[in-house]
Design a protein around this nucleic acid. Structure first.
Length: 268
DNA sequence: ATTAGGGTTAGTG
DNA sequence: CACTAACCCTAAT
């Protein structure tokens, strides 16, 4: 009647694939609304997307969720009519996890990293909203239920730290981020053991001395690099402690607020 | 409001 | 009729 089945076009299919690559399968509404895909998918509902994806992944090659009692035949594929259509059998889902891990909880720092990673990977010019961020992260990482709650405060925190920028309800990476550790130009301290200059008068002594000098410099450089590495480690440690403390503080605040709504708290 | 999954229908050989 | 792709229904979250 009024509904002659609308076959999916190649563009729609591509958009769907790209959408799943971006948000992960299951975030159909999100994909459908994304300005990047909506021009192609405006005629489709989120349910359509889901059904189409089911067909795509259940069809040729991959066995999707939709193989049931219906007799499945091995598909002899006699003729060569479709030989070019299967080209892009994608390596779509399956992204390596950020952190190999099976314990379902993360430190605040790890959350921060995941969020930053997600936002920068999504590369949305107007920033990414909560759902996009969650979608991205959930696609490649199993996260606890509490994650979404934590996400809010993590985002606030990252904004406060000026690592993210909030525009409307979207977040983007701050460009002017001075993450790059300023490497101080190596100062020439006046402790150089010897200057190598007379090239026309190379003696064994000179060579030996040069090698000693070189060895000295190398040792010194190694020492400095070691110290730098230690400093970085220490900085990371301090930052982690700060984050942990911060999240504890936030937790305490939340508890306090909850309590103070219900009753007068008895604090001696 | 959305999603997953089972069911139904139209199109095709 | 058998099969597939598109569409519909509904419980679960």
């Amino acid at each position: 009647m009024g509904n002659p089945k609308q076959k999916w076009t190649a563009e729609e299919e591509e958009a769907l694939r790209a959408g799943v690559a971006k948000y992960g399968k299951g975030n159909w509404k999100l994909i459908q609304r994304d300005p990047e895909f909506s021009p192609f998918l405006f005629a489709r509902s989120n349910i359509d997307l889901k059904d189409k994806w089911r067909n795509l992944s259940g069809g040729p090659g991959g066995n999707g969720s939709r193989e049931k009692s219906r007799s499945s035949k091995p598909k002899p594929s006699t003729d060569g009519q479709q030989s070019s259509a299967v080209v892009k059998q994608s390596a779509l889902p399956k992204v390596k996890p950020l952190i190999d891990d099976s314990s379902k909880s993360f430190t605040p720092n790890q959350y921060n990293e995941m969020i930053i990673e997600a936002v920068s990977a999504l590369k949305e010019p107007n920033g990414s909203d909560n759902r996009a961020i969650v979608g991205y992260i959930e696609q490649r990482q199993e996260v606890p239920q509490s994650f979404k709650k934590q996400l809010c405060s993590r985002l606030k925190r990252l904004v406060a730290l000026e690592k993210l920028e909030k525009v409307d309800n979207r977040y983007k990476i701050r460009k002017d981020e001075t993450f790059g550790i300023k490497i101080p130009s190596p100062k020439q301290k006046g402790m150089r053991p010897k200057q190598l200059q007379n090239t026309d008068h190379i003696t064994c002594d000179a060579v030996e001395e040069a090698s000693v000098t070189a060895a000295y410099l190398i040792a010194e450089a190694e020492n400095k690099s070691f110290l730098a590495a230690e400093a970085v480690k220490e900085a990371e440690r301090v930052s982690k402690v700060a984050e942990d403390t911060d999240s504890l503080l936030q937790l305490a605040k939340e508890i306090f607020e909850t309590c103070s709504q219900d009753e007068i708290v008895l604090i001696a």
